[in-house]
Design a protein around this nucleic acid. Sequence first.
DNA 1: CGTTTTTCCGTAAACGTTTACGACAACACA
DNA 2: TGTGTTGTCGTAAACGTTTACGGAAAAACG
Lengths: 351, 351
Amino acid sequence: MLAKTVGEPSLASSIHDLARHLNISIGTVSRALNGRADVNADTRQRVLEAAKKLNYAPNQSGRSLRQGATHSIAFMLQPHPGDQQYGEPFFIPFLTGLQARLAESGLDLIVVMGAPGDYQQERLRRVVETRRADAVVLAWTRREDERIEYLAERGFPFATLGRSRSGGKSYPSLDLDFEKAGSDAVDRLVSRGHRRIAAIRPSLDLNFGHLFMTGYRKALRRHGIEVDPGLIAEGFINEAGGYQVTPRVMLSKDRPTAIIFNNDAMALGGCKALAEMGISPGHDIAVIVIVDTPLCRYFSPALTGFRPALEPLGRRLAEMLLASLPAFAGPEGTRIMREVWPLELIARDSD
Amino acid sequence: MLAKTVGEPSLASSIHDLARHLNISIGTVSRALNGRADVNADTRQRVLEAAKKLNYAPNQSGRSLRQGATHSIAFMLQPHPGDQQYGEPFFIPFLTGLQARLAESGLDLIVVMGAPGDYQQERLRRVVETRRADAVVLAWTRREDERIEYLAERGFPFATLGRSRSGGKSYPSLDLDFEKAGSDAVDRLVSRGHRRIAAIRPSLDLNFGHLFMTGYRKALRRHGIEVDPGLIAEGFINEAGGYQVTPRVMLSKDRPTAIIFNNDAMALGGCKALAEMGISPGHDIAVIVIVDTPLCRYFSPALTGFRPALEPLGRRLAEMLLASLPAFAGPEGTRIMREVWPLELIARDSD
DNA sequence: CGTTTTTCCGTAAACGTTTACGACAACACA
DNA sequence: TGTGTTGTCGTAAACGTTTACGGAAAAACG
């Protein structure tokens, strides 16, 4: 495919080239490169120098084939159904943390894009069966998650951002405490005198949506407030979703005086709908969002919400995954299987 | 690593298992699987059935090693310097299109996360040198881009989203017409009576920032308006950036009556700053954004801007890349090297 | 100086594929 | 019946690594 130009170092120099160049065997070269003990100090030196000079880097395929490990972890990323145009800003900082921690252990992170609609199952199978990665990281877990069942059944190593009822307790999972957030949001609103509190949520299949709503319900009951189905609406988890369904709860017989939105994008769409109805968030109605991003802070009015620490979250999940992999496990007993991080409310101007 | 359970199909079944199970040679199995002509019709049938039954999928490492090709394309993704917390919603739909088209040609898309700060150079080298992908897709091209120089110099196949002065014309590149957008934005504002038009832009290293600004300058001159450096400010390409620098142009001796923001996030931050100064966008001042996302549509007031068709963009770039790869090239002469797509203004309420 | 240990290195097999080559049978043709 | 052709398959090499093993030389020890 590529014309090999003479003179300059070839794009693909193999361990054989190195060996030939140094007049030693490939075995020695490999051992020198991999830092093994049984190689003379200055032959190692010479090998390292030659490697740099000839621009040598080991061929990953050869390496993986021999070792039976790819040294890479796959993250399955995919547009959410209904989330046509917008993307999920949530993941970039998370992935940054994930990648940073994995890199420290010599692992590559590869993000595998799914096609919209098939909910990753097909792509996931492909990654697993062709052994493209040593482990998988899943996000946006569902309450019953066939991806998790598939992986657990096969004994393929994985970790999840988010909990699920599938797959038992066999895998590390890290989650945010959306239930507490939902509950805290209600508490705060009630303490400010609200009793008719609406919730704009995504599908309950998505586990964070489910958790948010159980927190919401429990808190309402705790305060002796009946849960009014007319104050709850489900929409796609983006601006359009919030825009479409927010009017529905506002048209309820007894209007809500506060709305809790699942996330920033839905809140943005919802606020647009409110504005069109002549209702001003933070003034005529209180607004809180469960998962906020910088968007909430720079919105007018600045939206009160719960800001997750995404990059540390990514780092931590990487650590948990590593601890569950035999090849990287520290002293036994360091395996962390479940963790739920608190979500802190950041009070701003919208409630 | 994984305990092999007896009875159920093993996770890793090789071509040897298949051959043994069918009592034929691995060569025949391979030929049958790969649809070669010299294999009997019903042995092929038997092989296919057995493959399904034993859950066989070819080991990618073995395949790549033998063929000298990985069948995967790498997209380099990385948090922009200064873009700490937020992410880039821009890319998800683009990647969706890219992946869809590549999949149609049997190629996998893998997204490689860079560490913040090193501007991909290190990760890129790693991908290229360890031969993890057959080609690379770059985004956020800079005016002088060392990544492009590196790849072009090596003869490694790649394509870019965005133009650059580096690397000659040796690679396919697809871009949006930011210059025209900048110019159109000015035209529109001038036609509505504005003469003091500010611009909030990112670093001029980023080629789209540069293009936007040349369009802006040219249009101003065309209208006989002098470019006032006091009306131009540079910030990080996120909410915080817009928030920080917008006050600077507002404090100019002669206040602007309109602002053009580079993108949605900067506009959001900028509008926040304006609100804090008691200035209402769309009322006291006109606002246009160059690269908009659904965010602009659902903001209040809805922001006028130029919406790119991201998914088609991804598909198209995939096509251009494929056409440049000998292994996928159609009839000679189908290589498309440069393309610039128009950007259409969507008028909303902010100007 | 002889023996044991240590240090260092080369050899070769193995990982799972693909593919060039040749072999063998069946068949067609004269 | 002999020769050529076609269809089908097995053999073995190759891709670039890593690593178990053994051997030779050097060092240590008595």
